[in-house]
Amino acid sequence: MSEQPTLEINALSAGYGRFDVVRDVALSVGKGEAVALLGPNGAGKTTVLRAIMGLVKQRRGLIRIGGTDVSALPTHRIARGLAAIAPEGRRLFLDQSVEDNLLLGALHLRHDKARTQTLLASVYDLFPVLKAYRQRLSSFLSGGEQQMVAIGRMLMSDPEIMLLDEPSVALSPVAVDIVVKAMLELRKRGASLLLVEQRTDVATRVCDRLYVMTHGEIVDEMKPETIRSGGMSILNKYLG
């Protein structure tokens, strides 16, 4: 890849308290690329995403998004168009409506009404069911629909890189399928994705490359084809 990657991480260490959960992580996501971070519970995948968003107080190393060094920026500055996250547990603003949740995602674009409306239309285009439910309190939605709102809220800030933390967790097979199709559609629209997953099948369907993480370190990098053609056993070695 000749051009600069959308997301570039080098020598990242991050954690809470006295111990680093994540040590010396290096990874990159190119423009329009989708990359997965696989690994067992407690491997530090979520911490990597949180460190990119600036949600981990203690982080060292280089994090660059679209050429901007964000490793010293506060979260709310990173969230203004550089990175956006659909976090673990979705974390919607449950006492607000679907549309309010989405509009809050476009907080930094509040003076640009036209762009906000275009983005909103594109989210409803991606998830037509949300348009029908737009005035509903988000706590009334099913798990799958809540995940759609979380992804929609992330899209609304029109970020350089989208971070998705286990979007398939605790969803029915049908809902997982919808979420996967949505991610594929995002890829078609040219989005760059960093996906944290435990489900290998979801990751291989969506992503170009996969990093394997265990114990806070990236231990391997592979292509989905490797896994499909029998690499599963290698992967199982890491994932247990």
Binding site: T75, A79, L103, G105, L107, R153
Partner: peptide, 21 residues
């Protein structure tokens, strides 16, 4: 929008900062 942002901050300050507040 400010009121909604206030609600969002009250409900989940960390997520509020992650949407740019």
């Amino acid at each position: 929008l400010f009121g909604k942002l206030g609600m969002a901050t009250a409900a989940d300050p960390e997520m509020a900062s992650a949407i740019g507040a």
